[in-house]
C-alpha cells in the first residue's frame, strides 16, 4: 500500500472543473513528481491533498487514513507538510521565527532544536541569516526557507509546489540537490513542477497532468525518455 493514495479526485472552483478524476500513488521513501503546464491543475492537486481546497468527490488516503474534509492544520499534524506555491514565507518575521512556526505542531523541544540544526546544515545560507527578516532574503533563499520551514514539522510526506519558480538555473541546481538529500534522509516527497527536466531527473516516479487529468505516468527515467514528454515538456524534437 502506498503512503499516499489519491483516487478519482475531482475539484471544482465554482463552474470550473479544475481536477477531473486524478489518481496517483506516492510510495514511501520515493520522490514522485507531478509535471504539467500552467493551469493544468498541479497546484490544485497539492492544495486538495493538504486540505486547502475541498474536493467535490474522490478519495485521498494517507497512511491508511482518509484526508477528505480534514482541516489543513490537522493534516499537518498527521504528517504532511508543504512548501506552498509562491513560497509564502512570513516576510516581516525573522528566518528563525519562520522556522519556529514550521515547528508549531510539535511539543518535543529537544527534537525541534536538533531538527533545526539538521535543516540549517542542509541550508547553510539560512544559518547566516537567522536573525534577518525573511522578506529581505533573495528568491532562492526564500525558497530554501520555505522548504526548511516545512521540514521542521518533521513530515512523513513533504509537498513541494514549484520550488524552481522564478529562480536562476544555478540556484535551481542547488535546491534540487538538497531535495534529493532530504529524500535520502528518509522523507517522502511529492514534487510539483513545470521544470520537467529537473523534476524527472530527481524523481523516481512521474505523473503528467493536462487540463485536470493524468495523461501519462511511469518511472521518471522512462518518462524523460518518452517522445511525448520530450516534445511537450522538454523542448526536444
Amino acid at each position: 500500500m502506498a503512503l499516499l493514495e489519491v483516487r478519482d479526485l475531482h475539484v471544482h472552483y465554482g463552474a470550473v472543473h479544475a481536477l477531473q478524476g486524478i489518481s496517483l500513488d506516492v510510495e514511501e521513501g520515493q520522490i514522485v513528481t507531478l509535471i504539467g503546464s500552467n493551469g493544468a491543475g498541479k497546484s490544485t492537486t497539492l492544495r486538495a491533498i493538504s486540505g486547502l481546497v475541498r474536493p467535490s468527490s474522490g478519495s485521498i488516503k494517507f497512511a491508511g487514513r482518509h484526508l477528505e474534509g480534514v482541516k489543513a492544520h490537522e493534516i499537518v499534524r498527521m504528517g504532511i507538510a508543504q512548501s506552498p506555491e509562491g513560497r509564502g514565507v512570513f516576510a516581516n518575521l525573522t528566518v528563525d521565527d519562520n522556522l519556529e512556526i514550521g515547528a508549531y505542531t510539535r511539543t518535543d523541544r529537544a527534537g525541534v532544536l536538533s531538527d533545526k540544526e539538521r535543516v540549517l546544515d542542509l541550508f547553510p545560507r539560512l544559518r547566516e541569516r537567522l536573525r534577518q527578516l525573511s522578506g529581505t532574503l533573495s528568491g532562492g533563499e526564500q525558497q530554501m526557507l520555505a522548504i526548511a520551514r516545512a521540514l521542521l514539522a518533521r513530515p512523513k510526506l513533504l509537498l513541494l509546489d514549484e520550488p524552481s519558480l522564478g529562480l536562476a538555473p544555478q540556484i535551481v541546481q542547488t535546491i534540487f540537490a538538497i531535495i534529493r538529500d532530504i529524500n535520502k534522509q528518509g522523507t517522502t516527497i511529492l514534487l510539483i513542477e513545470q521544470n520537467a527536466h529537473m523534476a524527472l531527473g530527481a524523481a523516481h516516479m512521474g505523473y503528467v497532468i493536462e487540463v485536470g487529468q493524468i495523461v501519462l505516468h511511469d518511472e521518471a527515467r522512462v518518462l524523460a525518455a518518452s517522445d511525448e514528454v520530450r516534445k511537450a515538456y522538454l523542448g526536444v524534437g
Binding site: L52, K71, A72, H73, A81, G88, A91, L93, I101, Y104
Partner: peptide, 23 residues
C-alpha cells in the same frame, strides 16, 4: 510560540494554516 502564531496569521493566513496553525 503562541505569539508567533498570531503574527503568522497577519503575515499570510493560508501559509499559516499550511504550517498547522488553526488560524
Amino acid at each position: 510560540t503562541h505569539g508567533r502564531a498570531f503574527l503568522s496569521v497577519r503575515e499570510d493566513e493560508i501559509a499559516a494554516e499550511a504550517m498547522g496553525i488553526p488560524t
